[in-house]
Amino acid sequence: MDKPLDKSTDNINSNASQTLTNHLLGIKIEYKCKDGFFYEDDQSTEKYATCDRTKGNFIYPEPFGKCVESKTCSQKPPGTETLADSGSLGDSVTGTLGAVFTETFSNDYDSSKTYNNDDIVTYKCKSELDEVFKGTERVGEIKNTCQWDETWSLTDENLKDYECKLNLCDIRQLKEQEANAGTLTLETQTHVSFNENGIFKCPEGQLREDDPTTAEFQVLCESTGNFKLPASWPTCADASDLVIDFSTIR
């Protein structure tokens, strides 16, 4: 029986005895990566050599290779091209690749950084009023992962499925209306999603004169990206001066 291979220089621990006296027919030897290491071909942590009963030697896995801590994606991830990279504007449709993609999407790719397996490059819409969509699904952001086979999880074709769409009303529209809103003050301080409301509120201790059951006034964000502003703004009055018709309250 031949002597088992010593793979210790390849970051592999072997439980095989190195003495011929322990080599029995039918023995199976486990070659396990050291903690935190993986076989470079398939990211497994162990491989086995088996004994050939007829020839009296060991049959080793192919490929056997060595164990490594990580693999590196050396290629630049798709969708991070610039005009200088492509030499042209590329595709003219928002959401497809070429320089137009990077005109619409920002990303956190750092060319000075080494990207190993499981490292992620994230893409977001450049406009703070846009959100990332995949078809009709709002996904927020795109994540592209460096994989063990040294490729990126999302290809050029995959990224074509994403686009940036206007999905918010700019809160600055309402801030500009505060001067017209009388004593109402704007409570909402962030951009508002379509079909949701920006909120104005009466001063403390006051209610709306037109609806004394509430101190709030809501302004709808429409799918055009604009708020549906009222023809006239409601006024506020001290709650003690208002009469509530409880028959109208359900």
Rank of each mutant, 00 (worst) to 15 (best):
R172H: 05
D245W: 07
S106H: 11
D2P: 07
T50Q: 06
F105M: 10
S86M: 13
E40C: 09
L159I: 07
K160A: 11
T80P: 09
P61R: 04
L174Y: 02
R138Y: 03
E216T: 06
L207R: 05
L25P: 15
K28L: 09
Y123H: 11
N226M: 07
K143G: 08
A231E: 15
D156T: 12
I120E: 12
A231D: 12
F227T: 02
P4S: 08
Y109Q: 10
L166I: 00
W152V: 07
G65S: 12
S106T: 14
A215P: 01
P78E: 06
P63H: 01
G205S: 14
Q206R: 03
F133P: 03
L129Y: 02
N116A: 12
N107S: 08
F37D: 03
D91L: 11
S193A: 14
I171L: 02
S240A: 09
G90Y: 02
T45Q: 15
T102Y: 07
E103W: 13
Q147T: 10
K7C: 14
F38A: 08
F217E: 01
S247W: 05
G87H: 00
G87L: 00
Q206A: 04
Q173W: 01
P212T: 04
S14K: 15
C221A: 02
D156L: 08
P212R: 01
S240N: 10
S86D: 07
C202H: 03
W233S: 01
N13D: 10
S14V: 11
L184N: 00
A16W: 13
D238Q: 14
N15G: 11
V93E: 13
L174I: 03
D149N: 15
E128K: 15
S70F: 13
Q147H: 02
D161Y: 05
D41F: 12
P212L: 05
Y115R: 13
G79Y: 06
L242R: 01
V132S: 06
T45P: 08
N180W: 00
T104F: 07
D245G: 05
Y39C: 06
S92D: 11
G36S: 06
K134G: 08
K7T: 13
N11F: 08
K165M: 09
D52S: 07
S106N: 12
K175H: 04
N167D: 12
T50E: 07
G182A: 04
H191D: 14
G87I: 04
T54Y: 13
L174N: 00
S232Q: 13
F105E: 07
A179S: 10
S247N: 15
K76R: 15
W233C: 03
S106C: 10
K71W: 01
K66F: 05
E46S: 15
Y39F: 15
T72V: 15
T185W: 03
V219T: 00
T50G: 05
S86P: 00
D170Q: 00
K165F: 05
N57C: 09
G135Y: 01
S247E: 13
G225A: 01
R250Y: 09
T96L: 15
I244S: 06
D110G: 11
P77H: 12
T9V: 14
D170V: 03
